[in-house]
């Protein structure tokens, strides 16, 4: 039974007085994987940030309904508690806070349950193994000195540990080598289940081969201009976005 997890109607947003999202509609059901593509500057990261509740972006019209609840006015941490997750296009470096400590804290906050140090470490190690990450990353400071690809992998690690209901992956595949794309894609695929939904923002078709998405959306100038299946992505690969501009 598919159930609607996300329902966005006529979403408009502005940042520093510039309108970026100009009436965006999107529906997602549990169990689905969606792909979002679009030219540089179309508003994909903006959309991800607006969904997550970035305070610089102001919603000027429309509604975001997540799990039957209007979340327009929820702060980012509350949205995370509702089950949203964003894998950032450019993850921040946080010196002094280790990956393990941070994730354990986040997990405790999200679940409201204590996470024993050793039990949590065990889970973390399993997930790291799955993503072929060296255990030593657990005790490193969050993203500090990580390579571009390592940062992206670390985002996916956070996703599989925190187990959100809706994961938005903003160009997680950019900057990953061929092997890493396979590992990360398999991780995402394994994470996907009937109870969650995943929105993948990407410029490349490579990841589609692994993910077998249900829908592909084309975002141009702040609006979704076309929705289709995997064939649509193939067309874009050949012809570019010209016909949608």
């Amino acid at each position: 039974m598919n159930k609607k997890i996300l329902d966005i109607k006529n979403l408009r947003s502005k940042v520093d007085e510039t309108e970026i999202l100009k009436g965006l509609d999107l529906e997602m059901n549990k169990g689905e994987i969606h792909i979002m593509m679009g030219p540089n500057g179309a508003g994909k990261s903006t959309f991800a940030n607006v969904l997550m509740g970035h305070p610089k972006h102001e919603i000027i019209d429309g509604e975001i309904i997540f799990n039957d609840k209007i979340i327009n006015d929820l702060s980012v941490d509350k949205r995370a508690k509702e089950g949203m997750f964003l894998s950032f296009q450019y993850p921040e470096e946080i010196p002094g806070v280790t990956v393990e400590n941070f994730l354990r804290n986040a997990k405790m906050t999200l679940t409201g349950e204590n996470q024993g140090v050793f039990a949590f470490r065990k889970v973390l190690k399993e997930k790291m193994k799955l993503l072929e990450m060296d255990e030593s990353y657990a005790s490193r400071y969050l993203n500090q000195g990580f390579s571009g690809g390592e940062k992206k992998k670390n985002e996916i690690l956070q996703m599989v540990v925190l187990e959100p209901k809706l994961a938005i992956l903003d160009e997680t595949d950019s900057g990953l080598d061929i092997d890493a794309i396979r590992i990360v894609s398999n991780g995402v695929k394994a994470f996907s289940n009937d109870d969650n939904a995943i929105l993948v923002i990407t410029h490349y078709n490579k990841i589609l081969d692994y993910l077998e998405p249900d829908f592909v959306h084309i975002l141009v100038d702040g609006k979704i201009v076309k929705t289709g299946g995997i064939k649509l992505a193939r067309e874009i690969e050949e012809k570019g976005f010209e016909e949608f501009k």
């Binding site: 305070p55 702060s75 980012v76 941490d77 508690k81 921040e92 946080i94 002094g96 806070v97 906050t109």
Partner: peptide, 25 residues
């Protein structure tokens, strides 16, 4: 602001995130 948003996007409250950053420094 970006660091704060990043930490908070994992469910951590604003005051907890600030505390983390100060304590880390």
């Amino acid at each position: 602001e970006l660091k704060l948003f990043y930490l908070m996007s994992r469910g951590i409250s604003e005051s907890q995130a600030k505390k983390m950053i100060v304590e880390a420094s």
